[in-house]
Design a protein around this nucleic acid. Structure first.
Length: 707
DNA sequence: CAGAGACTCGAGGAG
DNA sequence: CGAGTCTCTG
């Protein structure tokens, strides 16, 4: 370990070695934040100051958790399964598996995703005769989520908003929604945190157990904690006060999810003896990128103030490109990627394209398909949110959790087997009357129902019994295969005329792979598998070995880095997003979002905007983002200067050399290309066409259209 | 009960 | 414009 400390700079080393109590590490982008956390853990273990089970490290994404775990193991030279490195949500799920009965839940509770939440809430609204025109379900759920994040029970919420018509409706739904969740033994994401904090407050002995065990607590991305997360961490750390929080207020981009950057300030109050260490040297990016990003973030008024710097080379200037519309923007990105791959030895996996909203991915997707660039989109319609995946997982959940009414309901008539709304209604009525789970009610109803319906139902229940056996005998992967084959699900897909059915089949195959992988790693426990599936996102499915261009939102980009980054849609209304234009605080968050995107780039950064783009099928003209004009021009280069560029005078933007260089041309046969050299005093042009190669033309008579 | 076609609404972001 | 939901008909 002493050898390893040499790999750290002074501030990092101090953060690793400090043992005087609460520690707050303010770490700029690319300053070795993860390094500090992993080395600190390894250091504690290597020096025998803590045993693996004494350490809790919390992150926000599964990917970060996994990476951190692996890096610690590498440092130690051995794996250490007793070490808890997990996300807030999986930590809470794990704690609750052990103590759920104390908050009146069975050990086999299921975890709902957003889609499940919506349908449950919609059902509640219908039962309450709530006018969903005036009270959209999404909005109501948002308020419920906020309430949970503020740790308010339905009753407390009702009391605190007495007299507010809208909030009273929310309170009504909140109450009903929680009842339904409990009846189905289900929790949503917020509940995982809510019930853990409840557990800690109502059963101090449980808190004692965990806070006694974890003598060292580390929290990554501290700026993204919300109130309830902060309270959980605080409760866990109060006994030993060896808490190390690492964060960057400039990268706080989750206020809409309840994240409160003020937690960083509150930390000083709750732990007045806190020691603050700043990490300001960036090791990731070229100085052009760092200077541009720093200038941008300096425009924010609400920040703790940190001067990010780098000793790295200047590198290429940040490249700015203004496109006609979103399709041309996508074409530029694709052409540039091909160019860099063909001429400069980059690989597809070196590239990432970031956008503000998912909807922007479409144009890129289409263009990449056309130009045969391999790519992977993260987050759009998540893998685990696909209908076929949810259907099949609902079978598994129904097998594992007999009280999971929602899953039973979902699979009852999928694929179609003649168990329609009438049968369901009868069973639901029975379940409500007898206060039993739906699955139980179905069993009873199977004997009472008239011929055909009863027959169908009995057959379905027999199927489920068979599958249950299969699960016990063969584990998760075997059960999933059984579900696909015996339920007729696979058959229906294979014989369907739906053009997407091939893709769906592939997705199911992938699910089987995931299950097989899980079995190999952790054994066949279906509860663990379902938990993983509920808490993982498709960002966690990203396979680093795959040589593909990554497409994702700016929000999911946090924590990642790529040699080449394209940031698209730098327009007023897109980035900054239109919903933030009137609110100075929200606008600063948009700026941080842009900052996060820029600082992901190691070598090359491209900022793109379009003069017009299609919104709901209609063209809209948008002004260039203010963020572009906040960047220092000495770090920029415009690939194609355009009239209307926001900075006055644009000669500086053309860069050195010929004004023709870098310009875009279209050739009738070769397509769109870039002028890469001007030769013979301007008489000849060397043009690169993606996928074609380089072609020389006489400038005067070149059959080229200037773009 | 199932499938086709009309209709509506959405796209701000995630565990 | 496109996905998901609703309604109508066979």
């Amino acid at each position: 370990m002493p050898v390893l400390l040499k790999e750290l700079n002074e501030a990092q080393r101090e953060a690793v070695q400090y043992r005087g109590g609460p520690l707050l590490v303010l770490a700029g982008a690319g300053s070795g934040k993860t390094r500090v956390v992993t080395y600190r853990i390894a250091h504690l273990l290597a020096r025998g100051e803590a045993k693996p089970w004494n350490i809790l490290a919390v992150t926000f994404t599964n990917k970060a958790a996994r990476e951190m775990k692996e890096r610690v193991w590498t440092l130690l030279g051995r794996s250490e399964p007793e070490l808890w490195v997990s996300t807030f949500h999986s930590m809470c799920a794990r704690i609750l598996r052990g103590h759920a009965h104390l908050v009146n839940y069975p050990r086999e509770f299921s975890i709902l995703d957003q889609g499940d939440q919506q349908s449950l809430a919609r059902e509640c609204c219908r039962e309450m005769n709530l006018d969903t025109e005036r009270f959209p379900v999404g909005l109501l759920l948002q308020h419920i989520s906020n309430a949970k994040q503020a740790f308010l029970s339905p009753q407390q919420y009702r009391v605190s908003w007495e007299g507010d018509y809208f909030k009273e409706k929310v309170a009504g739904l909140y109450e009903k929604y929680q009842q339904r969740l409990k009846k189905a033994s289900a929790m949503d994401f917020d509940d995982l945190l809510f019930w853990v904090l409840t557990l800690f407050l109502e059963h101090p002995q449980v808190l004692d157990f965990y806070s006694g065990r974890w003598t060292h607590v580390l929290v990554d991305e501290f700026q993204d904690t919300n109130q309830i997360q902060y309270r959980i961490v605080k409760a866990l750390a109060e006994k030993h006060r060896q808490i190390c929080a690492v964060g960057d207020d400039d990268q706080s981009i989750y206020s809409w999810r309840g994240a409160d950057p003020k937690n960083i300030l509150r930390f000083d109050e709750d732990f007045p003896e806190v020691k603050v260490i700043r990490l300001e040297q960036n090791y990731r990016s070229t100085s052009n990128i760092i200077e541009a990003a720093s200038s941008l973030i300096r425009q924010n008024l609400m920040r703790r103030g940190k001067q990010l710097w780098t000793a790295n080379e200047p590198g290429d200037p940040v490249c700015v490109y203004m496109a006609e519309d979103e399709r041309e923007e996508a074409r530029f990105v694709a052409a540039e990627i091909r160019h860099l791959v063909l001429r400069e030895g980059f690989r597809p996996s070196d590239f990432a394209v970031f956008y503000r909203t998912h909807a922007q991915s479409r144009a890129l997707e289409e263009e990449f398909l056309d130009s045969r660039i391999l790519f992977a989109i993260y987050g759009a319609v998540g893998f685990y949110e696909r209908r076929e995946i949810k259907d099949v997982l609902a079978y598994l959940r129904a097998l594992v959790y007999p009280h999971d009414d929602l899953s039973w309901k979902r699979i009852l008539n999928v694929p179609k087997r003649g168990i329609g709304p009438k049968t369901l209604k009868a069973a639901e009525a029975l379940a409500a009357r007898e206060e039993i789970p739906l699955s139980k009610a179905l069993e009873l109803a199977a004997h009472e129902l008239p011929k055909k319906a009863g027959l169908n139902l009995r057959e379905f229940l027999r199927l489920m019994e068979n599958l249950k056996e299969k699960l016990q005998e063969q584990g998760v992967a075997g059960a999933l295969r059984g579900i696909l084959e015996q339920s007729g699900y696979l058959y229906e897909l294979q014989t369907s005329s739906d053009p997407t059915s091939g893709q769906r089949e592939e997705n199911l195959e992938e699910l089987l792979n995931i299950a097989a992988e899980y079995e190999a790693e952790e054994g066949g426990d279906p509860v663990g598998f379902l938990e993983r599936v509920a808490l993982f996102t498709d960002l966690d499915l990203k396979d680093p070995g795959e040589d593909k261009v990554s497409l994702m939102t700016l929000h999911s980009a946090k924590g990642l880095e790529f040699p080449v980054v394209f940031l698209v849609g730098l327009e007023e209304g897109i980035l900054p997003h239109r919903s933030s234009l009137k609110d100075p605080e929200a606008l600063e968050e948009e700026r941080r979002l842009c900052y996060v995107g820029m600082t992901r780039a190691r070598k090359k950064l491209y900022l793109c905007c379009a003069k017009k783009r299609r919104v709901w099928g209609v063209f809209q003209s948008l002004a260039v983002s203010r963020f572009l004009s906040e960047l220092p021009r000495e770090n920029l280069e415009a690939l194609m200067p355009e009239p209307g560029w926001p900075t006055e005078g644009r000669s500086h933007l053309a860069g050195q050399g010929s004004p023709l260089k870098g310009r875009w041309v279209r050739h009738a046969v070769f397509g769109v290309g870039t002028v890469i050299a001007v030769e013979g005093g301007g008489s000849r042009l060397l043009v690169h066409f993606p996928g074609v190669g380089e072609k020389r033309f006489l400038t005067e008579e070149a059959p080229l259209q200037w773009l």
